[in-house]
Design a protein around this nucleic acid. Structure first.
Length: 112
DNA sequence: GGGCTGACTGACG
DNA sequence: ACGTCAGCCAGCC
């Protein structure tokens, strides 16, 4: 039996979530960031999975589509947002190669 | 406190 | 370049 939380119970973690969301909102249009990159910026060098976990419950007003994995690809997720994410990014001018990968050197946020 | 899960990552073959 | 594997970390039971 799998219980799905849309948001963490503890208010302490809400602060972490808030920081993650705030950072994601700063990603410029037409650019992408990786989970690890965001985690690092928040002082959690190995907390990439936690970032992904947080985005699982993201609200609709944040540009979650601009977060991809370190390989430059869209991560699989329980919900069916794969196509949506790719469409949104393409609408922002982000190009995908044949294998559905993004050139992080070109579209990556800041350094990588 | 112990154990499991996951929108991850870097290393290997 | 692609599939596997072992670490990682916060949250939940």
């Amino acid at each position: 039996m799998k219980t799905i939380r849309v948001f963490p119970r503890s208010s302490a973690s809400n602060n972490l979530f808030t920081r993650i969301y705030a950072l994601v909102r700063k990603i410029p249009r037409g650019r992408v960031a990786t989970y690890g990159q965001i985690a690092r910026a928040l002082g959690m060098p190995r907390g990439a999975r936690t970032v992904g976990w947080a985005l699982r419950a993201c609200e609709k007003n944040i540009p979650w589509q601009r977060v991809v994995n370190a390989h430059g690809k869209i991560s699989l997720r329980p919900t069916a947002g794969f196509q949506t994410q790719r469409a949104r990014l393409r609408a922002e001018g982000v190009r995908f190669d044949r294998s559905g990968k993004i050139n992080l050197k070109k579209y990556g946020w800041q350094k990588i």
